[in-house]
Design a binder for these strands. Structure first.
Lengths: 362, 362
DNA sequence: AGGAAAATTGAATCGTAAC
DNA sequence: GGTTACGATTCAATTTTCC
């Protein structure tokens, strides 16, 4: 672990570069391999604009056998690099994920979960010929059935408003300022993953100081999030433009403080804090008006900690779901309110609470 | 289609029984194959009660190769039985779905979507060692890449509050009265699928009168829902207890009325009416001036139903495309004209026509 | 400046009836 | 079966432009 090229983005072919790294040197691997999309013609939106699809050479394979051989090779190397108790995450779509999963099983990986990344804002199906392809799949696997892999259960539970994190994650695409762009203002990389996805992956399955490998680094999301979260990374990428941009991105990233990095202890569950306790304590007065990020819906806080909006009344979660028509809703992150002229998330109450243990309402 | 054992639950081994059915006889197939779950020992809840998992003999395979061979055999038969434009649905979990999907692709099936069934009430992860396994995956595939498969897009959109249906479906498990039970009140089948799931599958990909095959019929959900929705079924099951229960279940089921079975029709299935027929009937006089929404271009209606603008002459579609430089154009929604002081879309002619069948111009 | 309307965009395997 | 021409089809989130 001494001569590892830590916290670097290595330039080279993925398989070849992995071969130069020592056995059992990685605590975790995140891999976003080519999807082998096999797009045929150009696709237009109903307004006649052309969809900018993935037509890069790196996503072209002659046939399934060629793709499988490539997949088997890099996955075998990945398994060799993983520590005995390490885990690997591989992301894909229906075009390739079945081949990925089957080959992983054949190589001896032990699948722990398949995770569905439900996209908040997927591209629609413009021709009305299929269901909106609104998700991608992550396979999370241990090196083998006997691995004592790491899973930060309590941290995941805390991230999910104190109920077990499910295998379906609802996260937005990488857009706006987060998306890296070239000199012409066009997206640098066609498939840049959102930081929120890597954040959850790393928090779930690694600890501070762990070494994370990304064999298909691309725009460097894994590397950047590893640095932010106090993990080490080894990233591999072959395209010089991506490497240059990713290095600048990592450079600009700052590591969080140890305090911020202290995740929920795995031993015992932190007492769940009901929303109503904040109202009781006057930290959020009854009568306060909450609204969502877009200010499309609003509701008023009642003295018992319920929300009222029109004829509806319910918990912060129920009301968020009801007013948006969603099956469920995390009220802590859904609602916002105004405080000292600023708009703040409801979740700030819990954040501040955890830093001030004297106000324990457990 | 004459000697098919329609609307019966056949007793026998799945592959062998399929072999006796003729090529291209099934419009749709729904398959819920064994999951190859490799549960090591009993699973206990925190209160020490035993979780009633899948441990039936039919779900045991020696290794991946054995499972793959079985899978390849029944999927090959399924493909033979499918009509040219038929589709197949296969459901699985991370234990087996990657092998299913890869083999389907190898056999020539063309995947249309992978659908995530998000369970409203999944079993929690009692040990806290993984994410709650809260979904199963359905693979929806056509017989091949050139299939003109059926997808009732408008019906799915209507089911989803008029936004197109996504690839993630949120549906409850099969519980309560819907769950078949034996004489002891215990669940009859370990993996009985909810009727809502089959309802959506059948409404999405079949029409009234279609023939649906279920090679792993189990508790008969596919057969029951096919009968209710006016589809024919051929079901295969080898376990006598399941067959008996499923036959009684189907018997008790009633077919909905034709009225209740009417779904939102797709526009492309409504008979076409040539634009010229409206001119012939005088519903739109020759000489009428058409213009686009922004009144940027205009054209005059000729007696033969063509449009003229400057030196150009052509159909409503060709002219719309030509005058805007677009590669194609739907003239019906592109053009407007003035009627009784109001600006109306050209498409109003077809709308009014369909409401006044006496004006039949067929 | 501020608010409203318009434009942009995303890992996409995205026609078919009629002649 | 091949060819031609019709004509169906989009959601959410940002960002940019317009008033």
């Amino acid at each position: 672990m001494q001569d590892l090229p830590l916290n670097q983005i290595l330039c080279g072919e993925c398989i070849e570069t992995m071969r130069a790294l020592p056995d059992g040197s990685m605590d975790c691997i995140f891999a976003d391999p080519p999807y082998n999309l096999q797009l045929r013609g150009e696709l237009r939106r109903p307004d006649e604009s052309v969809v900018d699809g993935v037509d890069d050479a790196w996503d072209k394979f002659a046939d399934y056998a060629t793709y499988d051989n490539f997949t088997r090779e890099w996955l075998a190397e990945a398994r060799r690099l993983l520590t005995k108790d390490g885990t690997i995450w591989v992301i894909g779509s229906y075009h390739n994920v079945f081949r990925l999963g089957a080959i992983m099983q054949d190589l001896g990986f032990w699948i722990l979960n398949d995770i569905v990344w439900r996209k908040a804002n997927p591209m629609p199906n413009f021709r009305g010929r299929r269901f909106t392809n609104a998700h991608e799949t992550l396979i999370w696997a241990a090196r083998g059935p006997e691995s004592k892999y790491r899973f930060n259960y309590q941290a995941m539970k805390a991230l999910n408003d104190d109920v077990q994190m499910r295998s379906d994650w609802y996260l937005p695409l990488c857009t706006g300022n987060e998306r890296l762009r070239n000199a012409h203002g066009l997206k640098l990389h066609p498939t840049q993953k959102p930081e929120s996805l890597l954040h959850r992956v790393l928090i779930a399955s690694t600890v501070v100081g762990d070494i994370v490998l990304d064999p298909f680094s691309g725009s460097g999301t894994t590397a950047a999030m590893a640095k932010r979260l106090g993990r080490h990374f080894v990233a591999i990428e072959r395209h010089p433009d991506y490497i240059e941009a990713a290095r600048a991105r990592v450079e600009a990233e700052t590591r969080l403080s140890d305090e911020q990095l202290a995740i929920t202890p795995a031993k015992r569950e932190i007492p769940r804090v009901p929303f109503g306790s904040f109202v009781e304590q006057g930290l959020l007065p009854a009568g306060t008006v909450l609204f969502d990020r877009q200010r499309r819906v609003s509701a008023t806080v009642m003295p018992d900690g319920s929300l009222v909006s029109g004829a509806h009344r319910g918990s912060i979660h129920k009301m968020g779901a009801q007013l948006t028509g969603a099956p469920s809703c995390n009220g802590w992150t859904f609602w916002f309110f105004e405080r000292e002229g600023e708009i703040v998330t409801l979740d700030i109450l819990r954040t501040e609470q955890s830093r001030a243990p004297l106000l324990n309402v457990g």
